[in-house]
């Protein structure tokens, strides 16, 4: 297992978050928020859960080898959102302050870390069960 930070996986994680998190929530926003603006808070919550799920799948598929890369990719993704797409993602949080933005970025990073770490553990668990089944 490599311990070195992989720039390739860092960029791939960022791209995966864009495609599977941002683009999907952007389409959902078009469907939901244009008709029900009050549902934007729920969309943000769903988006955070969805980000965790993406990280979980990524962690599982890579056998838990890219936990820090996924975390870094998610933080880069969040920074991009804050800098360029804040109107979209942070619409319900008007007059948002730096501490809240920092908190949100850390939350996203923590969710991605937890998701990919848990995905890796799940992979190991499934492997152990497979080994156990074969050995029996």
């Amino acid at each position: 297992m490599e311990s070195k930070f992989s720039a390739k996986w860092f960029l791939t994680a960022f791209c995966l978050f864009v495609w599977f998190q941002f683009v999907t929530t952007f389409l959902l926003k078009g469907l939901i928020v244009s008709t029900i603006p009050s549902e934007m808070n729920k969309l943000v919550a769903i988006g955070l859960v969805w980000l965790f799920v993406i990280a979980l799948v990524l962690g599982y598929r890579t056998a838990g080898t890219v936990v820090w890369e996924t975390t870094g990719g998610s933080v880069l993704y969040m920074l991009m959102m804050v800098l360029f797409f804040n109107r979209f993602w942070l619409a319900p949080m008007k007059n948002i302050y730096l501490d809240r933005l920092t908190g949100l970025t850390l939350l996203v990073g923590a969710l991605a870390f937890a998701g990919s770490w848990l995905g890796g553990k799940l992979f190991q668990l499934s492997r152990r069960q497979e080994i156990k089944a074969v050995s029996q």
């Binding site: 070195k4 992989s6 996986w9 838990g64 080898t65 190991q124 492997r127 080994i131």
Partner: peptide
């Protein structure tokens, strides 16, 4: 059946 997948990062 290895516990970890070698070379996943590459």
């Amino acid at each position: 059946i290895p516990l970890q997948v070698e070379g996943t990062k590459d």
